[in-house]
């Protein structure tokens, strides 16, 4: 982060356990930095206004929408994206549950759904179908795969518990 107000500057971002240094314009959102600078394109851009959840990532372990955050504000924080979930070839349990339950159609909302579900399960807020629906209400699915998404999250939550 710049010590004095500046229009462009270097930032160091910690993403999925790795450090990346990159020169950015002050206007760069975390979402754009992830996709265009670090080429981590798993995080999707839908509305860019916080309303669809496609860009959900974890910041210090908590769910946030990366479109409503300046990249500069993520400096010194730990960012986890969809690319950071799997252990080598082994899918994260929530990823595996999405595959098993056919919890997507076009797949555009899926990385955001999965990151939001991982956050909800970690926060202990995926205890019932109603709670899962409420907790994932910030993640919209234009294909309407909701029924299978709830089933996948429920399954992953029980397996992780």
């Amino acid at each position: 982060m710049p010590p004095e107000p500046a229009q462009s500057f270097a930032v160091t971002l910690r993403v999925n356990g790795q450090s990346f240094e990159t020169e950015i314009d002050a206007r760069t959102t975390l979402l754009d930095a992830l996709r265009d600078r670090l080429h981590l394109t798993g995080t999707k851009k839908g509305c860019a206004l916080g309303q669809c959840g496609a860009c959900t990532v974890l910041l210090d372990g908590k769910r946030v929408v990366s479109c409503l955050m300046l990249a500069a504000m993520a400096e010194g924080r730990e960012v986890t994206t969809i690319e950071g979930l799997a252990r080598g070839d082994e899918l994260h349990p929530v990823q595996a549950a999405f595959v098993e339950h056919d919890a997507f159609q076009c797949g555009y909302c899926t990385p955001g759904q999965i990151m939001s579900a991982v956050g909800a399960i970690r926060e202990g807020r995926a205890g019932s179908d109603d709670e899962i629906r409420e907790q994932l209400s910030g993640n919209l699915c234009r294909c309407g795969a909701y029924a299978n998404i709830v089933a996948a999250v429920r399954d992953a939550a029980t397996r992780e518990a």
């Binding site: 959900t56 946030v64 956050g119 807020r125 910030g138």
Partner: peptide, 8 residues
């Protein structure tokens, strides 16, 4: 809002 927005 949503859980994501509430975290921010």
């Amino acid at each position: 809002a949503s859980p994501m927005v509430r975290h921010m």
